[in-house]
Design a protein around this nucleic acid. Structure first.
Length: 496
RNA sequence: GGCGACAUAGCCAAGUGGUAAGGCAGAGCUCUGCAAAAGCUCCAUCGUCGGUUCGACUCCGACUGUCGCCUCCA
C-alpha cells in the first residue's frame, strides 16, 4: 500500500517515491497579490495542505515552499491606480491571503520566498540561458527563445506550430518569435527596478519560480504544484527555463495540478470578476465547512461553488463533530491531542481498524479525499455502541483522521463556544441576564451567563413549568444560543 | 481554428468489466413535556446512439451538451 498520484508530466497515476530517501520536497505556485484572493485560490491551497498532512502522517520529512510573486504588471498598475507603492499592494493583498489561510487552518509553508528577494538567482539563470544561446537581449528586455529548446511544449502537450495559429498572440518587434516570453523586463519610466547586467529592470513572470524552487529545494525536486490554469504557459515556461541548465535532468518529478473552481457556471477569475472573495466567504461560513466542501470533490475536477453545497457540507461536518464529542465522553477522553491521534492512526486499535484502512486506501488512490470522507461516515454507525476504552480509541482515531483532512475541531473553540457570540448577541444576553438574574458585573463572562440561565431553565423543566422553560429557551435563541435537551441534561451551542 | 476535460438520483458528488461510496434534502419509525439534535430504515441503473464482450455505467466509435487552456489567472 503506497501513495499514488496523478502526474501531469506523464499523464498517468504513478506510485509516489521520494527522490531523496525520506525527504519530500514540494514547490507550490502561490499567489501574485494584485487583487483580493478568492475561493478558487483557497481550493488549491487546501488540497496541498491535505497532501502535506498525509505525507506527514506517512512519516515523510516534508519541505513545502510556496512562493509570492511580488512584482508584475498588475501589481504595478494597481499601485499606480491606488496611489501607493507596489510594496504596499503586495502587503495588503498578501496579508489578506495569509490571514484567510490561517483561518482555514492551512499550515504555513516552511518557506514563503518572494521574487524581488531573489534577483541574483534569477540573473544567474538568465545568464546561463544566454550562454546556451536560449536567451537573447533586445531593446526592452531579455527574452526566452522558444525555438531554441526542442522540448518546449511537452509538459502541457502543446506544439509550437499550433500555438502560433492562435490568433491571440501578438507579434512584437522586440521579440524574434511571437511565442518568446520575457525573462527580464527593462525599466520603463516610473517603474520599480533592480540592477542587472542588462541595466535596471525587473524579472518577467515565470522566472521567479525557476529561481526560488532551485534555491530552496535543489533540482530536481519531488512535487511541483499549482492550479490547472498554470500549466500553460507558466509551468511550461518554468520547465523551459530550468531544464536546459540541468544537463538532461528534469525539474520536478511529479506535477500536480488542481482543478479550477467555478461560480455560476464559469471559472472564478480575477479578470471575469465573478469571484467570491475569500475574506467575505470566511465571514459567512465556518472555515472547516469550506474545507469539508472541497474534500467532497476530486481535487482534479472542476468544481462549481453553490450556496446549497456549502450548507450540505456544514451539516455533514456537524455530524462528525457530534460523534467525536460523544465518543470522547463515552471514552472518558478529556483532551484530544494531535500527536496522540496520529499515533492512534498509525497503529489503529480494533475499534478503528476498518476506518483507518478505508481512509488510507482512499488517500493512497490519488488523494481521494471524497473517499476518505466516505470512509469516516461509513464507519460512524459502527461506533454507536462503543463504550470505555474502545470508545476512547475510536475518538482518537477519528480525531486523527479529521486532522489529516484538516477538519479537526479546534479545541479552544469547542472549549469556549461563547466566543462565537458577536457583540450584539452578547448585549442581548446581558439584557436577558439582567431580567432573570440581575445586573451582570463588568467582568462577567458570556459563557457563565448562559450557563446560569440554562440552569434556571432546567429548574423550571424539572418543576414541569414548561411555559417558563420554553420562554427562556426562546429568549436564548434570540441571542443566537440554541439549547438542546439530552439524556445527560441540557447542552447549548451558538449558531451564526 | 488547435489541444483537452467533463456529462451518475431533487442538489453536491465518489466509483468499478460482473448488476452503483458518501453528504445534503425528502419519507417512515425510535427517543422526547414540546422542540431540537441524534439513531435506525427507505430513496438512482450511471447524456444519446451504435460496437466489442458471457456480461459495460465502467472499453471503443459517433453524436449531443457543458466547460477549460491557447492572454493575466490557484
Amino acid at each position: 500500500m503506497s501513495l499514488r498520484l496523478y502526474n501531469s508530466r506523464t499523464r498517468a497515476v504513478e506510485t509516489f517515491t521520494p527522490l531523496d530517501g525520506n525527504r519530500v520536497r514540494i514547490y507550490m505556485c502561490g499567489l501574485t497579490p494584485s487583487a483580493d484572493p478568492h475561493l478558487g485560490h483557497a481550493r488549491s491551497m487546501l488540497f496541498f495542505d491535505v497532501l502535506r498532512r498525509y505525507l506527514d502522517f506517512l512519516g515523510y520529512a516534508v519541505t513545502y515552499v510556496q512562493n509570492v510573486t511580488d512584482i508584475d504588471d498588475k501589481i504595478i498598475k494597481r499601485a499606480a491606480d491606488e496611489g501607493v507603492t507596489w510594496h504596499d499592494i503586495v502587503e495588503k493583498y498578501y496579508g489578506s491571503f495569509a490571514a484567510s489561510l490561517d483561518k482555514l487552518g492551512v499550515r504555513r509553508p516552511e518557506v514563503e520566498p518572494r521574487a524581488t528577494e531573489h534577483v541574483p538567482k534569477i540573473i544567474e539563470i538568465i545568464r546561463g540561458l544566454e550562454r546556451k544561446g536560449i536567451a537573447y537581449e533586445s531593446d526592452d528586455g531579455v527574452y526566452y527563445s522558444v525555438r531554441a529548446w526542442p522540448a518546449y511544449g511537452q509538459l502541457s502537450g502543446r506544439h509550437i506550430d499550433d500555438l502560433l495559429e492562435s490568433v491571440r498572440i501578438d507579434a512584437s518587434e522586440h521579440k524574434r518569435d511571437p511565442l518568446d516570453f520575457a525573462l527580464w523586463k527593462k525599466q520603463k519610466p516610473g517603474e520599480p527596478a533592480w540592477e542587472s547586467p542588462w541595466g535596471p529592470g525587473r524579472p518577467g513572470w515565470h522566472i521567479e519560480c525557476s529561481a526560488m524552487s532551485w534555491e530552496y529545494l535543489g533540482e530536481p525536486f519531488d512535487i511541483h504544484g499549482g492550479g490547472l490554469d498554470l500549466i500553460f504557459p507558466h509551468h511550461e515556461n518554468e520547465v523551459a527555463q530550468t531544464e536546459p541548465l540541468l544537463d538532461g535532468g528534469f525539474m520536478a518529478n511529479f506535477w500536480v495540478h488542481t482543478g479550477l473552481l467555478f461560480f455560476d457556471g464559469s471559472k472564478m477569475s480575477k479578470s471575469l470578476g465573478n469571484f467570491v472573495p475569500l475574506e467575505e466567504e470566511l465571514r459567512r461560513h465556518d472555515p472547516r465547512a469550506l474545507r469539508t466542501l472541497f474534500l467532497q470533490i476530486d481535487y482534479r475536477k472542476q468544481a462549481n461553488f453553490t450556496v446549497d453545497s456549502i450548507a450540505a457540507a456544514t451539516k455533514g461536518l456537524q455530524r462528525l463533530d457530534e460523534t467525536l464529542a460523544d465518543l470522547a465522553v463515552r471514552g472518558g477522553v478529556a483532551h484530544l491531542d494531535e500527536l496522540e491521534a496520529l499515533d492512534a492512526l498509525r497503529a489503529p486499535a480494533p475499534a478503528a481498524e476498518s476506518m483507518v484502512r478505508a481512509l488510507r486506501e482512499a488517500l493512497d488512490a490519488d488523494m481521494s479525499t471524497a473517499g476518505a470522507l466516505a470512509a469516516l461516515f461509513g464507519w460512524l454507525p459502527g461506533t454507536r455502541a462503543l463504550e470505555g476504552e474502545p470508545a476512547a480509541q475510536a475518538a482518537r482515531a477519528l480525531y486523527g483522521a479529521m486532522w489529516i483532512l484538516g477538519v479537526a475541531p479546534r479545541v479552544e473553540r469547542t472549549a469556549r463556544p461563547a466566543d462565537l457570540l458577536n457583540s450584539g448577541q452578547v448585549e442581548q444576553l446581558r439584557g436577558l441576564y439582567a431580567v432573570e438574574v440581575g445586573p451582570a458585573p463588568n467582568g462577567k463572562q458570556p459563557g457563565e451567563m448562559v450557563e446560569e440561565i440554562v440552569e434556571l431553565r432546567d429548574k423550571a423543566r424539572r418543576a414541569r413549568d414548561f411555559a417558563r422553560s420554553d420562554s427562556l429557551r426562546d429568549a436564548l435563541a434570540g441571542a443566537g444560543i440554541v439549547v438542546k435537551d439530552g439524556k445527560e441534561g441540557s447542552t447549548w451551542s451558538v449558531v451564526r
